[in-house]
Every structure is written in C-alpha cells, then in structure tokens.
C-alpha cells in the first residue's frame, strides 16, 4: 500500500492505494495518527485507489472517526469502489461516516461547516 496526501482548501486529502488489510493497516493508522499529532483534524479519506478493505482497515477508519469527533474535527470519505462499499455496508459502517462520491464534494463537505 502506498499513501498519498495533498492539501485542499484547508483539508488534508489522504489517498491510500492498494489493499487495506492486516498487514498494511498499521502503516495507515500510523500515518493518520501523525496527522492528528500535527493538529490536522479536517480530513478527507479518498478510497478510490483501494482494491479492498478488511476489518483491520475498518478498525483504522473507526479509530479515525472517533478521534476526529473527540477533537471536533471533520471527516468525509470519497471514492468508495464496489468492494469497499460492500464491506462498509456489511459492517454497518456507512451511517457512521459522511460519504461523498468525489473528492471535491468531500472537501466541500468538511470545509463548509
């Protein structure tokens, strides 16, 4: 897994590329913790490059959601492919996140409020 990152209108857009599973999720978790330590709490997770996500990845996403809420930040997801969406749906995760179709919409969502 590779993790790309860019800044847009005050939001950090994080784009993991590849699979998010037991072996790759610790790196993603560490990356997101690094953002929190740096005071970045306005985050868009761009999942368009993710092949599939397992429950290890869901754990990272849940931790991120809880941390963002505690620090009064904002979080939105974008670019969920079929497999990723299916797993979020099966886990009952879709209601826990703001989910937008595109990065642009997700950035607008987290920056607006």
């Amino acid at each position: 897994m590779q993790i790309n990152e860019m800044r847009q209108q005050g939001a950090v857009v994080v784009s993991p590329v590849g699979r998010i599973d037991s072996t790759t999720s610790p790196a993603l978790d560490a990356h997101l913790q690094g953002l929190a330590k740096a005071g970045d709490h306005v985050i868009v997770m761009d999942l368009s490059g993710v092949d599939y996500i397992s429950s290890a990845g869901l754990r990272v996403m849940l931790t991120l959601a809880k941390r963002t809420k505690e620090s009064r930040g904002r979080l939105a997801l974008a670019g969920l492919g079929d497999s990723v969406r299916q797993v979020f749906e099966l886990a009952g995760f879709l209601p826990l996140f703001a989910v937008e179709a595109t990065n642009e919409a997700a950035v607008a969502k987290v920056v607006a409020a």
Binding site: S55, Q86, A91, G92
Partner: peptide, 22 residues
C-alpha cells in the same frame, strides 16, 4: 451489533461476520 452509534461501536467478531457474508 452493527447498528450501534459510533461511541459504542466495537469491532470484535466483525471479521468473521464479513467472512460469512463474503
């Protein structure tokens, strides 16, 4: 229980639930 709100959500057992579904 996948219907709980964020604060009370736990992940135990979720992996196996996914295995069954997938």
């Amino acid at each position: 229980d996948t219907s709980l709100p964020l604060e009370r959500r736990k992940l135990g057992g979720l992996g196996i639930a996914l295995v069954r579904a997938l």
